[in-house]
Design a protein around this nucleic acid. Structure first.
Length: 556
RNA sequence: GUCCCAGUAGCUCAGUUGGAUAGAGCAACGGUCUUCUAAACCGUUGGUCGGGGGUUCGAAUCCCUCCUGGGACGCCA
């Protein structure tokens, strides 16, 4: 807990005691004390709405209640300089802001650890994301999901959750057979033979390339094989090539996973058959039209779902249920699934399935990422599944860069539709938020280079800090103090974009301060104090950028 | 038709989970470099928070209803 948070906690306690002592409410009635940072600076550093919340309990008008609370607060203890009752009954607190310089010492001491908290209490969390089928390259939607998932994991990790990142590989279904068929056609084409391309085949460039590669490596050896033998070979070969490619691309994108969970492994272990058996034993299934159905409509789903088809094979849902059961069995406290909006219909049926198995469906949460529209040259870039023409993650990394791509995907709320303007993302101008934040970091480092040239050493002497008296300096201190709480809130609400927003605001304050005040000046004490402040800002920018997986350059 | 997401300044989006006079970037207009990086800063203009009802001290935020845009509604995955 840092200086700012300690201050808030003490103040909350003071408020609570004042309410109790004044007899406005008893222990059981008193609502949780809420402190907020008012939008208007004139309304103080913190404000509470306690008086308004107590109107019904205390049966007095809020301003009267507020006055009574104010009288009971020990200002010394809570580092309060001034208190006022305002508006309909707000109590505004003006803190002794010089106390905030403690934040600098804490940042200095914590270094890269500053921002980490234990609010998650080591809760075991599984986050499954990307999980793209190994039938082609990662496209735009995966890129967004990967960025949001990775940043969420980083943020939750920093907030003290025990996070496991997982990628589910759909390597067993129909789509893999289709991949093999598509690859077969591409392979034969590469050998100059006639080949009919399957109607619903995957037309991406990647499979064409793999077909060529295979032809080079194996020649026409596969042509003489039995059809099924050949397809089995193609399936293994294509799967490996495609998965390796996905792993490589994600690594370049700075996204790594703890587990790559294979669907096939669920078949091999018998987990798929087992889950069908369990559901049936629990009386959660029924037979109709020669198929086996799950009674999912009893658990809030629109309709019942087929588990085993007429032909005896499973639907996609069955192994997925086995997979999610496996997640529960591994003992996670929270199971987070990040999906694209096109799969949101899947949520009620999976919740239903888990409930049918006797698990608590509320342990499982779904984060839905909305669609991305890509603009280039002011025009919408069209995607076509039919022709396999789509902008891929690799394209974005090459044309926009990893920093900007990750930043832009992470900056928006996951459930907002996103317009990705490629021209803006690459522009080296003030329109580009990525550079704006990175520049703030580089700028500070530039000041340190200047200081070094002038032979100024940063002494870590806390007695210098009282030289910080400017309004903007206190604002910066307060902002720095808010960082750990901001990360924790982002984690608790699964809103990674809040961290990006915070960084942008911090960068704005830094730029503004930089333009208004000289850091290196004639007064050595003041210079030292300001250098210490800047050093802390740089540290927080760096820590924050690291959470979103973006570099913090020392020079631009 | 049913379900999910969204609708806030000309454009792209925030909005501390119900708080005080709704914010930022871009665009438009006007300023700031002989001094630590002007990829920056300062100022001005710009709003029936999609419409209408309701809940209460108080609503962009919660409830109902309607409108618009996007997505999903297979024994495909």
């Amino acid at each position: 807990m840092n200086a700012l948070e300690r201050m808030q906690e003490q103040l909350k306690e003071e408020i609570k005691q004042a309410v109790l002592n004044a007899g406005l409410a008893d222990e059981s009635q008193i609502p949780e004390v809420v402190l907020e940072v008012p939008r208007e600076k004139a309304h103080g550093d913190f404000a509470t709405n306690m008086a308004m919340q107590l109107t019904r309990i205390a049966r007095k008008n809020p301003r009267e209640i507020a006055t009574q609370i104010v009288e009971g607060i020990d200002r010394q203890k809570a580092h309060i300089k001034e208190i006022e009752v305002a508006g309909p009954g707000f109590i505004n607190f003006f803190i002794d802001r010089s106390y905030l310089t403690d934040v600098l010492r804490e940042i200095e001491a914590a270094g890269e650890q500053y921002g980490r908290t234990d609010t998650g209490k080591g809760e075991k969390v599984l986050v499954e994301f990307v999980s793209a089928n190994p039938t082609g390259s990662l496209h735009l939607g995966h890129a967004r999901g990967a960025a949001i998932g990775d940043v969420l994991c980083n943020v939750m990790d920093a907030a003290g959750y025990d996070v496991t990142r997982e990628y589910y590989i759909n390597d067993a279904g129909n789509q893999i057979r289709m991949m093999a068929l598509s690859l077969e056609a591409r392979y034969l084409e590469a050998l100059g033979q006639e080949a009919e391309f399957p109607e619903d085949g995957y037309r991406g460039q990647d499979i064409i390339d793999i077909g060529k590669k295979l032809a080079e490596e194996e020649g026409d050896r596969l042509v003489s094989m039995e059809r099924e033998e050949r397809l089995a070979f193609l399936r293994e070969y294509g799967l490996k090539q495609l998965l390796d490619k996905i792993k490589r691309d994600l690594e370049k994108y700075r996204v790594t996973f703890d587990n790559w969970f294979s669907e096939t492994s669920l078949y091999e272990s018998g987990a798929v058959d087992e889950v069908v058996k369990i559901l049936t034993e629990r009386g959660e299934t029924f037979e109709k039209d020669g198929a086996l159905w799950l009674k999912s409509s009893q658990y809030g789903d629109d309709k019942d779902r087929v588990l085993v088809k007429q032909d005896g094979t499973n639907t996609y849902l069955t192994p997925d249920i086995a997979y999610h059961r496996n997640k529960y069995e591994r003992g996670f406290d929270r199971i987070i699934n990040i999906f694209g909006a096109d799969h949101h219909g899947y949520i009620p049926r999976m919740r239903a399935a888990m409930e049918a198995l006797g698990y608590d469906p509320d342990k499982m949460t779904f984060l839905i990422t909305q669609m991305v529209k890509l603009y280039q040259g002011g025009e919408l870039v069209k995607m076509s599944k039919r022709t396999g023409k789509a902008v891929t993650l690799v394209d974005l990394m090459e044309e926009v860069g990893v920093d900007a791509t990750r930043y832009i995907f992470a900056m928006r709320s996951p459930d907002a539709h996103l317009d990705f303007d490629m021209d803006l993302a690459v522009s080296q101008s003030n329109e580009n938020p990525v550079f704006y934040v990175q520049y703030a970091h580089a700028r500070i480092n530039s000041v340190f280079r200047q200081a070094e040239e002038k032979g100024i050493q940063l002494k870590k002497d806390p007695t210098h800090l009282s030289a910080l008296q400017e309004e903007q300096e206190f604002d910066l201190l307060q902002k720095l103090g808010e960082f750990p709480g901001e990360v924790a809130t982002a984690a608790d609400h699964m809103q990674p974009h809040r961290v990006v927003r915070y960084l942008y605001d911090l960068a704005t304050q830094l730029h503004s301060y930089y333009n208004a005040h000289r850091v290196i000046g004639d007064d050595p004490t003041l210079t030292q104090a300001r250098l210490t402040l800047l050093s802390a800002v740089a540290q927080v920018l760096k820590n924050g950028l690291s959470l979103i997986g973006v570099h913090a350059p020392k020079q631009m």
